[in-house]
């Protein structure tokens, strides 16, 4: 069953005639890892912005299950239904890894009982220990920040996980670990993972690849 569906989606930058995305018709299902690949400037990140509700298509519609996401509150959509892992992570540098994850839970407004324990559980899932959890973001390496970003995206247990170049800054070993995490989340927890990537390894590890 499709969890996200694009119907004739196009996107043009405001004030220009330049069409970035043209008549896309994609379907995304739970339990699978999707890769969106394409040359630079093909509109991969723009597509991810449309899927995350940060931008709206100029034509066509995007459905979350059967609901047009334009009719869902964008903030609620981003804080409950989709988890977004940004290319530059977009973590709050003055907070610790743990605080970043807990803040995301707070914004989602879900009850978890012991938020700290839940956050630690998520951080452990992405191979971060207590010591790293208590460090401020700027004191963590790029790979560690990437993991914190994944943990934050998972913090409110969304059905869909969107990741922009999730392995772009990582070495081969760490990249493999991250991809493994995504596959586990899709295949073991039934999440829909959509990755925007340049990496052939990541694309290869995906279940379905869309090429722009």
């Amino acid at each position: 069953m499709s969890v996200l569906k694009l119907e004739h989606v196009s996107y043009r930058y405001a004030g220009t005639d330049k069409t970035i995305l043209n008549d896309l018709n994609y379907t995304f299902e739970k339990g699978r890892v999707y890769s969106i690949v394409g040359r630079s400037g093909a509109g991969k990140t723009t597509l991810l912005s449309l899927l995350s509700g940060l931008a709206a298509p100029t034509d066509g519609k995007i459905y979350l299950e059967d609901k047009d996401i334009n009719k869902i509150d964008k903030y609620e959509y981003r804080s409950k239904y989709v988890g977004v892992i940004f290319q530059s992570f977009n973590l709050l540098p003055k907070l610790t890894a743990m605080e970043n994850v807990i803040l995301s839970m707070d914004i989602a407004g879900k009850e978890y009982g012991d938020k700290k324990a839940h956050a630690m559980e998520l951080l452990k899932k992405v191979s971060l220990g207590e010591e790293e959890a208590s460090r401020r973001i700027l004191k963590l390496s790029g790979g560690q920040q990437q993991r914190v970003a994944i943990a934050r995206a998972l913090s409110y247990n969304p059905e869909i996980l969107l990741a922009d170049e999730p392995t772009g800054n990582l070495d081969g070993e760490t990249q493999a670990e991250i991809v493994k995490i995504f596959r586990q989340l899709a295949h073991e927890e039934g999440k829909c993972i959509i990755l925007v990537t340049h990496s052939p390894e990541v694309a290869e590890a995906s279940d379905i690849v869309y090429c722009l």
């Binding site: 981003r78 977004v84 803040l103």
Partner: peptide, 13 residues
Amino acid sequence: YEIGVLAAIGMKK
């Protein structure tokens, strides 16, 4: 930037 991040992760303006 902080405002952008908070809004991007779903905090209402």
